[in-house]
């Protein structure tokens, strides 16, 4: 009957073929609440329901694997930690050239570079360890390692890009093109954090995190500073960007933690 596609097929007919009929079923003895069988028992519905159950179980595993507040909190702390390093860190000035009334120099923020490299690598190690610990305590494994590896790789790529650009800068002392400025913002530590978050959102099939990461990247790339720091001088101009970027991550961390707490069964 099933191979005749012209015939009207209903699920009860399919169930008859799919499932092993138990002679005790008509009198209600097919499966007591404490039954102990490993035979193929009725699946409790049609193929559609089996698939729906599988999707629901997969969704619940993904929820159990998520510790979204952790990376956002750790990375916010790293960004806030960069503020004093930017303020008091050592800068190496070279290749000064006269332009108009003043001069333009190449500045290598030595301490800042080492801070970002060390702090971000450490942050991703802490995030991966924390994620695995929390997820395993819940009884599942986490999908965090590709995220941590991507994060570290992007940090390395960003600094490699900056080093090559400074060395080969063909237009110096002119400003780099808009595209190069966009690329450098994307690969700078706050931008690289956002790109890595996109990877985490994809790994976890997490739509809310995807939207958050896109919003964060918009803030980093535009960049939005509400006019703060425009005349703050060379020692504090960076503060608004770092405060806003870190603040967005911190708020996101609080939001995801709250959402997770509300969703948890009481």
């Amino acid at each position: 009957m099933l191979t005749n596609m012209n015939a009207k097929i209903n699920y009860s007919a399919i169930d008859d073929m799919l499932l092993i009929r138990n002679p005790l079923a008509p009198i209600g003895l097919v499966c007591k609440p404490v039954c102990m069988t490993t035979n193929s028992v009725p699946a409790g519905g049609d193929p559609r329901r089996l698939l729906a159950d599988a999707r629901d179980l997969a969704r619940r595993v993904r929820l159990a694997q998520r510790v979204t507040w952790l990376p956002l909190l750790v990375l916010a702390l790293v960004i806030f930690g960069a503020i004093p390093v930017h303020r008091y860190g050592r800068a190496v000035v070279s290749d000064c050239q006269a332009v108009g009334d003043g001069q333009v120099c190449k500045v290598w923020l030595q301490t800042v570079t080492f801070y970002w490299l060390a702090a971000l690598v450490l942050a991703y190690v802490v995030i991966a360890g924390g994620y695995l610990r929390v997820a395993r305590a819940r009884g599942v494994d986490a999908r965090v390692l590709p995220y941590a590896v991507t994060g570290v790789a992007l940090v390395g790529l960003g600094f490699a890009f900056a080093a090559v650009w400074v060395r080969l800068h063909p237009a110096y002392p002119e400003d780099p093109s808009a595209f190069v400025q966009f690329l450098s913002r994307l690969l700078a530590p706050p931008g690289a954090i956002g790109v890595a978050l996109l990877v985490l959102a994809w790994l976890e099939r997490h739509v809310a995190l995807l939207l958050f990461a896109l919003g964060y990247l918009t803030v980093v790339l535009v960049p939005i500073n509400f006019g703060w720091g425009a005349h703050w001088g060379p020692h504090t101009w960076f503060v608004p960007h770092l405060v806003i970027n870190g603040g967005v991550l911190l708020l996101g961390s609080a939001g995801f933690a709250l959402a997770q707490r509300l969703r948890r069964p009481r």
Binding site: A43, D53, L57, R62
Partner: peptide, 19 residues
């Protein structure tokens, strides 16, 4: 093709390792 075993395989696939 059994509800519980399909569930076990689905969870183990999604979780990679499950307790």
């Amino acid at each position: 093709h059994q509800r519980v075993r399909l569930g076990i395989l689905t969870i183990a696939h999604e979780a990679r390792r499950v307790e």
